[in-house]
Design a protein around this nucleic acid. Structure first.
Lengths: 125, 125
DNA sequence: ATTGGTGCAAATGGTTTGCACATTA
DNA sequence: TAATGTGCAAACCATTTGCACCAAT
């Protein structure tokens, strides 16, 4: 049931967010089990552990195409993007340094469209 | 004295590493003071807080040019690189999503040259 | 009976904080 | 005397783990 909710739920879930969803369905499930389930999914390769430096861990399904993240420092919303040119430049950089890259983490922090104050909008003034 | 050691020391220091260096010089200094000093430097903009998902925080001087990081998952060593083409692609991505970017974090994880087993070296086989 | 998974509460570990104390102006 | 910064130990908090328990083989 936990796994079902996880894959159906939105992306980039906090463990606590998932725990709430799960407990809304069944109050008898403890947080430890949610932690254990997510760790298991990550170990099996079905979930990715994310860390945006917020002090809490997030998880997302790894059954989707690779992507990186845009994190809004205003409302905390996380969105995704994919940019093959950045990917290949990373390969290039790694190779130049003799690195055998296995993965990378790229997050762009800033203010999302809804959080940009009107007076700072492109088409303002 | 803590500040002096911090800026003179190598990059990407763990708080614990810096505490060791400081206490080697003066045993009477507690870890709390080192934590407080680094937080202060970060607040004033002289230090950057880094988080590579290792479970510990690292700090580096922000008085150097912007750069991103290569993290060796074998020996833990962290090195730096700078790739203007990646930077400008990030700007482009942010703009495309209506984001006002303030910063980004890019870390490439993998195996550094010293940790690549010989049989996997490019010029092996 | 044995296995595997669970909830609960306690442990963990990096970081922060309350507080009494010292040092300086 | 007031203000600032310190060490120490306790608090914090997300996460992990020990353990007794339960369900299903």
């Amino acid at each position: 049931m936990i796994i079902g909710i996880f894959f159906r739920a939105g992306r980039h879930l906090t463990v606590d967010e998932l725990t709430r969803k799960v407990r809304a369905r069944n109050r008898d499930i403890g947080a430890a089990t949610v932690y254990r389930t997510l760790k298991l999914l990550a170990r099996l390769g079905y979930a990715k552990e994310l860390d945006f430096g917020e002090g809490v861990r997030r998880y997302e399904s790894s059954l989707t195409a690779h992507h990186d993240h845009l994190v809004c420092t205003g409302c905390g919303k996380v969105s995704e993007f994919e940019e093959p040119r950045i990917e290949s430049l990373q390969e290039e950089v790694a190779k130049k340094h003799g690195f055998l890259p296995t993965m990378h983490r790229l997050a762009i922090y800033g203010t999302c469209p809804e959080c940009v104050p009107p007076e700072l909008r492109e088409n303002a003034e």
